[in-house]
Simulated scan of single mutants.
Amino acid sequence: MGLRVTLVAAARSSSLLAERFDDDRPLDAAGWYEVQCAAEALVPLGGAELRYCSPTPRSRATGEALGYAPLAQPALRECDMGRWRGLTLAEVAALDPASVDAWLGDPRSAPHGGEPLLAFITRIGNWLDTRPADDGATIVAVAEPSVVRAAFVYVLKAPPATYWNVDVRPLSTVTLTGRPGGWHLQLEPAPRPAPVMRPYTPGP
């Protein structure tokens, strides 16, 4: 039967264009609203035997708001972006376009002085492969979207460049089943906001 690991992407802390490398800002108003809308679908995942989160403010806040009381896992931190920490991709590209091209084109490169993409993917994979191996164990982890993307690439044994083609929406989930070295992946859609119910008004 193996393990069942569900990764929940953290709610947002900024708009997509305003996202910064190694962003440590808390949830914004839109993020809190999304958590409230998704709670009905995601709260039951808190029944997992083990509950974790990335050590970022928005991951912690998402897990706490959903009632998971998660344990922060240093191994689930975002990729170390070195000198680019706190900058947006557009800002880095304007300052040093050649370095951005090298980073996007070679998963072993680290022009920012931090962690290469390949090392990041391997770190996330190692975390998965060292989870308790009891058959039937269930785990939920609220993680940064980048961490979910890295897990996706690792589990599928896809080329590292696949990382750039994976889009992870806030509060979407990925469920992994199996055991170290033999994972299967199941995608779930992001929960949609509950419709606003208006009182029925009979016609004339």
Rank of each mutant, 00 (worst) to 15 (best):
A151N: 01
C79F: 10
A150V: 03
S13C: 12
G181Q: 07
L187V: 07
D106Y: 04
V92P: 00
R169W: 04
R77V: 02
P74R: 02
A48F: 12
D167P: 02
E40A: 14
V166A: 00
L187Q: 08
R60L: 15
A161E: 08
P195T: 13
L118D: 03
T175N: 12
L50V: 15
A48E: 09
S54Q: 05
A93W: 14
A18H: 09
R85E: 07
G114D: 03
R12M: 05
S54Y: 01
Y163R: 02
D129M: 09
F21V: 05
A161K: 01
V174M: 14
G63D: 00
A18T: 06
S54F: 06
A90Y: 04
P57R: 13
R51P: 08
G105T: 11
T138W: 14
D101I: 13
M197Q: 15
P132D: 13
L185K: 10
P191Y: 06
R131E: 15
A110G: 00
H184P: 11
K157P: 05
V100Y: 09
N165F: 12
P26N: 10
G203Y: 11
L95Y: 10
E188G: 11
T138A: 15
A94I: 05
A119D: 12
A141E: 00
R4N: 13
G82S: 01
T56C: 12
P57W: 13
A94D: 00
L95C: 08
L87A: 10
G182H: 14
G114S: 10
R169D: 08
E91S: 01
Q73L: 06
R108N: 06
S13I: 06
P189W: 06
E34F: 04
Q186G: 13
G82M: 01
V43W: 08
